[in-house]
């Protein structure tokens, strides 16, 4: 199940969000050693996890446990590219009502590699569906240079927004990807997912 979780419907997804922020701490702090804030010792949450953020979350249908997620923020609100990494954009940070930023792509460490790849495919499709629902045409983001090849190998057509810059010894890159019904169509075929994956409400299993 893939959900779009925002400030408005967050109470219906307390468990999904709780396990997402825990996994983000396990991945970004424990494993990747990012210097990012930790809340209560177990959650990774930063200054951009506000009521403006929408999370695309894949959760286990049985337990509701987080499997994969990403964070979307409208570019007209405070977001990482504009507020922290603007120097990565050669021609200024892309900003507009149809431009949103995608960050904090997180795959649960408890998934095997094949499961993780499938879960990533689901949240990617979920993000495309959410984007088309909201009239988004461009998703921006940033990455370590070394992750670039992984994103490309995942089949996502990215465009760099400026030369890489070193932050704490690692080359960072700002990038964007254009989304459209055509991209969604293509990626549904590529990921072997015929129909819509995204929902805004918890799905209640029909009684047998």
């Amino acid at each position: 199940m893939v959900y779009a979780i925002s400030h408005a419907n967050r109470f219906q997804f307390a468990h999904e969000l709780d396990t997402m922020f825990r996994d983000r701490k396990r991945v970004f702090v424990d494993r990747l050693k990012w210097d990012v804030p930790v809340v209560d010792g177990i959650y990774e949450k930063d200054q951009f996890d506000t009521q403006d953020a929408t999370y695309i979350v894949s959760a286990s249908p049985a337990s509701g446990d987080h499997q994969a997620s990403l964070r979307l923020i409208p570019s007209l609100k405070a977001h990482m590219l504009r507020d922290v990494f603007h120097s990565l954009c050669e021609d200024g940070v892309p900003v507009g009502p149809d431009i949103w930023e995608m960050t904090r792509i997180c795959l649960s460490p408890s998934l095997g590699r094949a499961e993780a790849r499938e879960a990533f495919g689901r949240i990617w499709l979920g993000a495309l569906e959410f984007g088309l629902d909201q009239g988004i045409t461009v998703m921006t983001g940033l990455t370590h240079g070394p992750m670039f090849s992984n994103i490309l190998a995942a089949g996502i057509d990215i465009e760099p927004l400026g030369p890489t810059k070193l932050f704490e010894g690692l080359p960072y890159a700002a990038l964007q990807t254009r989304i459209s019904a055509k991209v969604l169509e293509r990626d549904r075929v590529r990921l072997n997912e015929p129909g819509r994956v995204l929902s805004y409400h918890p799905l209640i299993a029909a009684a047998a």
Binding site: G112, S149, A153
Partner: peptide
Amino acid sequence: AFAFEAARRLLLRTDKLNFDVDALPGLTER
């Protein structure tokens, strides 16, 4: 990165790339 990916896609299209990620044993992070 982009040249590598373009070459990979050209090779995959002709089934010439000999890596099958799906055939990899799935190992957990643990």
